[in-house]
Design a protein around this nucleic acid. Structure first.
Length: 164
DNA sequence: CAGCTGATTGTTTTG
DNA sequence: CAAAACAATCAGCTG
């Protein structure tokens, strides 16, 4: 029943939000359209085992916790959609201050991701170099040795601004 | 039996 | 710069 696209009368609250939602869903995972060739598909095809996944956003961090709360009070909840919607509205209702801890957590995750990305980048760079250099042949050299060479350092400026 | 879908927003990614 | 994709989760449905 996916054809049931009838959105009926949009209950209440926001109504203009369905922009990237349907799109992303339509052609994201699973290639239904053989003609369509999403660019990412190629990258996915490779699916680098070392490529770190994207860091969860503050919303996701909040979502994880929210799910527990939501399910705790709504054990009858069935799918993720219910929580998603509820969380979405709640998230919007939350003040930045309340989101702050979640945002901070997300920022931390991003930092970790950044670190992983550097390591992955090095590997990737080496892999590409190897690919270009050696077209065919048996590679196989799996040893990790660090050689600090190029690293991107980011400075963190602490500026606290609190306003209510 | 096994795997995808759906829904939320935010960050990452690529063009 | 902007649009697209994907990040987690979980239960339900489909092949």
């Amino acid at each position: 029943m996916k054809e049931a696209k009838a959105k009926k009368g949009s209950a209440s609250t926001e109504t203009k939000d369905r922009k990237a939602a349907d799109k992303r869903k339509s052609l994201s995972v699973k290639e239904k359209n053989p003609k369509k060739k999403p660019t990412r598909a190629e990258a996915k095809a490779k699916k680098d085992p070392n490529q770190p996944k994207r860091p969860q956003t503050a919303f996701f961090v909040f979502l994880e916790e929210f799910r527990k709360t939501f399910k705790a009070e709504n054990p009858n909840v069935k799918g993720v959609t219910a929580v998603g919607k509820a969380c979405g509205e709640k998230w919007k209702a939350m003040s930045e201050k309340e989101k702050a801890p979640y945002v901070a957590k997300a920022a931390q995750m991003k930092t970790e991701y950044d670190r992983s990305m550097v390591a992955y980048k090095k590997k990737k760079d080496a892999a590409e170099a190897q690919e270009e250099s050696e077209k065919s042949k048996s590679e196989i050299n799996d040893d990790e040795d660090d050689d600090g060479s190029e690293e991107e350092e980011e400075e963190e400026d602490d500026d606290e601004d609190d306003d209510e």
